[in-house]
């Protein structure tokens, strides 16, 4: 198991992301003898060993299942208990694309936070690149450090316990030489002046500052300008998730038929009532206009009921006509942060 490459078969000691349901993915380290308990059943680690990544796995009691997924930075982000504000994938993927992060990039990231973006950076820069990440908060630093070690990411990642706003970014025994900077700090403008000592001098350096409030952006823009950064641009990223659904087609002709049916049943009722009173022969003709007997299964007689009102219908039920529709999440992320981008150039031949 590695965040740098896929493997196919699950072994003991591997990190597996157990996909239980949408919104419920549980990271587990496969340990002989242990059992994963979910509300969809129990799953023995021993049985996972030797299975292929991606396999559907049945619960112990024969019902319920999970899927055993290989970790990636994106799936890891989804499985994270929200320890702190996460940089979500629509933001992180755009930052990586826009700043041209790739094999060989040298990243400066502060703060580490939940380390979810750190995973993504480490994956992308490969063994030719390097990620320097800084976290001031001790508890979180320790947690992130442990996690990065467990995930085997120390090959190209250096995590430092540091308040970069006060103490800058320099690291003993390392020439940081960063060419991509990501600042997710409450006051990036206090950290920006410290960057000059650690960013590359022989090539262009890109920066992204991630701030929730607009006033932080104003201060950041000023600090960047004062410090010689150019091409400053601020953007917002709006990410939405849509789901495919089916909506029942209700033709007005069926509505009309149903109204006629109600009318007929009513007049039949009156007729019957009259018959009871008068014992006069019933008029057969009154049933002629009754619509064809409903073909839908109906538990009690609702008359002609073309849309299955009052019954429980499964979305997409073959007995009805449907249209494909998309539905957005019921609650969308309307704001994550403002992203302020800028570049710094040596402005000389190198």
């Amino acid at each position: 198991m590695s965040f740098y490459a896929y493997k196919d078969i699950i072994e003991a000691g591997d990190l597996v992301l157990a996909f239980i349901s949408r919104g419920a993915t549980k990271p587990i380290t496969v340990t002989p003898g242990e059992v994963l308990n979910t509300r969809y059943g129990q799953f023995e680690h021993d049985l996972m060993i030797g299975m292929k990544y991606g396999s559907q796995m049945a619960g112990k009691k024969g019902y319920g299942f999970i899927h055993l997924l290989h970790p990636t930075p994106e799936l890891w982000t989804l499985s994270l208990p929200h320890r702190t504000q996460i940089v979500y994938t629509p933001d992180s993927s755009y930052i990586v694309q826009r700043l041209g992060v790739g094999p060989g990039s040298r990243i400066i990231e502060a703060g580490t936070g939940s380390a979810s973006f750190t995973h993504s950076f480490a994956r992308s820069v490969g063994d030719k690149g390097k990620v320097f990440t800084y976290e001031f908060h001790e508890v979180r630093y320790n947690e992130a450090k442990r996690e990065l070690e467990e995930h085997g990411l120390m090959k190209n990642t250096v995590i430092t316990h540091r308040n970069v706003c006060d103490d800058g970014f320099e690291i003993d025994n390392h020439k940081v030489d960063g060419d991509v900077v990501f600042l997710d700090l409450p006051s990036p403008w206090t950290a920006i002046p410290h960057l000059n000592k650690v960013i590359a001098e022989d090539r262009q350096v890109g920066i992204c500052c991630f701030s929730p409030c607009i006033e932080q952006v104003e201060k950041t823009v000023k600090a960047l300008e004062d410090d010689g950064w150019t091409s400053i641009e601020m953007v917002e990223v709006a990410g939405k998730r849509w789901e495919a659904r089916k909506d029942m087609v209700k033709h007005v002709d069926d509505v009309v038929k149903r109204l006629k049916d109600i009318q007929d049943r009513k007049s039949q009722g009156i007729e019957k009532l009259r018959n009871v009173n008068s014992t006069a022969p019933s008029e057969v003709s009154s049933t002629e206009s009754t619509p064809e007997p409903p073909s839908k299964k109906q538990k009690r007689d609702r008359g002609f009921n073309p849309f299955g009102k009052g019954t429980r219908i499964k979305e997409g039920d073959d007995q009805y006509e449907w249209r494909d529709v998309t539905k957005v999440e019921s609650e969308i992320k309307s704001h994550t942060s403002y992203l302020t981008f800028a570049y710094k150039n040596p402005n000389r031949k190198v």
Binding site: P212, C213, E215, E331, I332, K333, H335, T336, Y338
Partner: peptide
Amino acid sequence: VRPYQTIPGRMHPLMTMRGG
């Protein structure tokens, strides 16, 4: 319509809102 938090010095759109 996208509503904002308007606390002075901490202005930003609300973090979540109803979709649809």
